[in-house]
Nucleic acid binder design. Structure first.
Lengths: 255, 255
DNA sequence: AAGTGGTCTAGACCACGTT
DNA sequence: ACGTGGTCTAGACCACTTT
């Protein structure tokens, strides 16, 4: 990790043009993200203490604090008073909750049962290549899975992953794993999902989907198209979800 | 505005039990929210400067800063370097964007044309009373409106408001107003929508809705049930939206 | 030049969890 | 008792906007 930071980036002598002014704490934030991206500290682990980081970067503790504050606000880090600051992991209900917006109309959230129906390696279509920032024809892993709650089929997900990042991924591996998919990706492939964008639409269930979900054809289905990003805002997953929303709904907060 | 703040709330002598420890900046934050709720400063106006507030509350500027930081993060306030800190208003595209999640599949966001179809005063059903924290039978304003983009009908909203807060609201008034509904509520009734919770489902268009939206019956419709809250987390609007999502989608970010 | 928010520092002390 | 994050302070200086 580099030590000396520019306190006056791009504004030394003649040009006080601060068009690209970048505060110290933001530079430190970037360095921390890079470290996370490199895997210097694994999900679930503690990062060095604030005083330690302050020493390392040669800035005051308050400056490190502000960088960490922002990363905690973005949910990349998790602060726990008295214990330390930890790398977020999908092996926590709290994080999982942010990525599964489906909630029951009544009662408590049930754990989902996941069943992988298909997992094959294919070549990226133009559309998928564009979204995942690959070249057309690049290898891609295509997964179809069914999520059930209390044995009621509720979600069919079609998932596309860059083949280069998920070598050796198979239906057997996936079905042998208990727990959230993103937790699996994290521990088995070192890929942390950090953020996602979703587009939600109402569509009709086609023959395929209606069969899998056990509903009559043309039942209204909530279609959720998701692009997930890892640390440096690199897209690493395209997911098309089909939700039955008679007993469940997609929850959202507007702030 | 009260001046003296408890620096050690509920933990004076014998019991250092900080079960209810409340930092200074949070107390100040609460005072600021109360002031906003009272309407001490109107949407769009500047609040006093940080140094002014620090003086007023008898704390350091940094403590005021932290309170304002949180309110800015929650979008109640808007900081503008060199100019001041302003009360958020729905008369800004930036704020409106947060509350209208519908975006076109292609092209830029168009301004919506709003047409109020109905506005009447009714008595709250048990369900509506529960959500709006009223008594069953309390007066409620019921509005039905149609949103169109480039003359294409796209959204039907059924809106319910507490009658006591929206006296004199009528279809004429509503239709005479250009701009976002929440901006209208803000300037005409002093009600600021600050936060909302939504539940999204896929349903079939019934006869009513399909006619209004110009689609065939049983077309899949995105149904968006929203509860909006004003400053002290008081619910002040129940809204049931019906979106046609062939050319538009509901966008969302997972962080 | 003056006023605003934004950054950075250094230090004191508190709350929380672990040893 | 110790180490962690959390709060609060006071002061210096920077960046941005307006006068």
């Amino acid at each position: 990790m580099p030590e000396a930071l520019a306190r006056k980036p791009l504004s030394a002598a003649s040009t006080p043009v601060s068009a690209a002014f970048r505060p110290l704490y933001r530079q430190i934030k970037d360095l921390l993200v890079q470290a996370l991206d490199r895997g210097d500290w694994k999900p679930g682990e503690a990062i060095p203490s604030e005083t330690e980081l302050a020493l390392r970067f040669q800035v005051s503790q308050g400056t490190v604090r502000k960088a960490v504050d922002e990363l905690a606000a973005e949910n990349l880090l998790l602060r726990r008073q008295g214990k330390g600051t930890f790398v977020s992991t999908h092996h926590e209900a709290r994080v999982r909750f942010r990525f599964l917006r489906l909630a029951p109309n009544q009662g408590e959230v049930q754990p989902a049962e996941s069943q992988v129906l298909d997992c094959r390696r294919v070549r990226a279509s133009a559309e998928i290549a564009r979204v995942l920032e690959l070249k057309g024809g690049d290898p891609v892993v295509a997964i179809r899975r069914l999520l059930s709650f209390a044995s009621v089929p509720t979600v069919v997900d079609d998932i596309y992953l860059p083949g280069a990042l998920f070598k050796g991924l198979s239906a057997e591996l996936l079905n042998g794993y208990r727990g959230p998919l993103y937790g699996f990706f994290e521990t088995e492939f070192g890929i942390s999902m950090v953020r996602a964008e979703e587009k939600v639409r109402a569509v009709s269930a086609d023959a395929d989907i209606s069969t899998l979900l056990g509903v009559v054809q043309d039942t209204p289905i909530l279609k959720v198209d998701r692009i997930s990003f890892t640390y440096a805002d690199r897209p690493v997953e395209l997911r098309m979800g089909h939700y039955v929303t008679d007993r469940y709904h997609y929850r959202n907060s507007l702030n």
